[in-house]
Simulated assay, not measured.
Amino acid sequence: MSTTETAWGELAGLTLTKGHGTGNDFVFVTDPEASLELNPELVAAVCDRHFGIGADGFIRAAKSTAIQPGTDAPAEQWFMDYRNADGSVSEMCGNGVRAFVEYLTTEGLIELPEGARVQIGTRAGVKTVGRTENGYAIDMGPWSFIHGDAAREDGSDSMVAARGLQTQRPALSISMGNPHTVVMLGNEGKLDGLGLEVAPSVTPIPPNGTNVEFVVPEEIEDTMEETGTNSVGAIRIRVHERGVGETLSCGTGACAAAAATRFWGGEESPDEWLVHVPGGTLAVTFVLGPDELEHVVLAGPATMVGKVVLN
């Protein structure tokens, strides 16, 4: 539904901010007590690229205690209340967390000098975000197989059909707090030929739907040129996000794609990865977390680009 047919409701007259992380773009609003009524139709209208501001997602900055009453979250902790472009609520967004912290700092809601860290509430748990020289690094927490041990025998647990592929392809479903299904393709021609304006079909599909990542490995020579070492893996991906469509970048998708590729590669696979998305490059690193589980650290830039007041 277009904004010509939808009232802006409680957002009318408010200043919203537009920002992005490697081209994955978001609209932000500050609402500490979560008092605004954000129904799906309103969010979809704001995110509409023709009749609204246009974005892959909508993020409300609210206090964790307002979104999740009764929790033991510190009073000063901010919560990333994230919605997809269609208005549906999502558990987590890796690019969104980086952009969210950049929004909080540029709005003066927090102070975060280089080297400092802050904890952010999300529906996928509390995430620790550190400010780096070139952006932000996030401990995304542990990754896991959505379908449990079903993936361990042949490296796949589902099948994916997509426009541009003649046959279904085996895939691996990974949870990063939100669901992902990763497909390895043989060459960049197949990746470029995908028609991701149509949602891929996943069988069996995870209970809450899934994002779908298509992956091709990068040449070792390209990796060495960027890092000076071949101990860093590199992949190129395209992503179809549930509730959005194809996006220029997906932070949790980059993590899931690296996790699946690393699993397929076996014990010799590196712990550090460059993930090339249409909107830029993200860094993904696998580390041992304080819970003795394998955590994923996502690093990349974030930028605020402007403000708008809704009529």
Rank of each mutant, 00 (worst) to 15 (best):
N39G: 14
N211A: 04
D222Q: 14
T285S: 15
K18H: 10
C255P: 09
G266H: 05
E226L: 15
A116Q: 12
L282Q: 02
M159L: 14
L298E: 02
G96S: 12
T167I: 09
P32T: 00
R262Q: 14
V232I: 15
G253N: 05
T22I: 01
P278D: 08
H240D: 03
D86S: 07
L172W: 08
W8H: 08
K18T: 11
R131W: 07
D154K: 13
R242C: 04
G54C: 10
L16F: 00
L38Y: 11
T71S: 14
G148A: 05
A199G: 03
P204G: 08
A299D: 10
R131P: 04
K127W: 10
L185S: 11
T106C: 06
T261D: 04
L16A: 05
Y82M: 15
T4C: 07
I110Q: 01
G243D: 09
F145Y: 14
I174A: 12
E102G: 03
K63L: 15
N208W: 00
V46T: 05
S144A: 14
D72K: 15
F51L: 07
G279N: 02
L104S: 13
V183L: 11
E225W: 02
S90V: 15
A256N: 02
F58G: 11
V27M: 09
L282P: 13
V118T: 15
G115T: 06
T30C: 14
D31T: 07
V27D: 01
D271C: 09
A73I: 06
G193S: 06
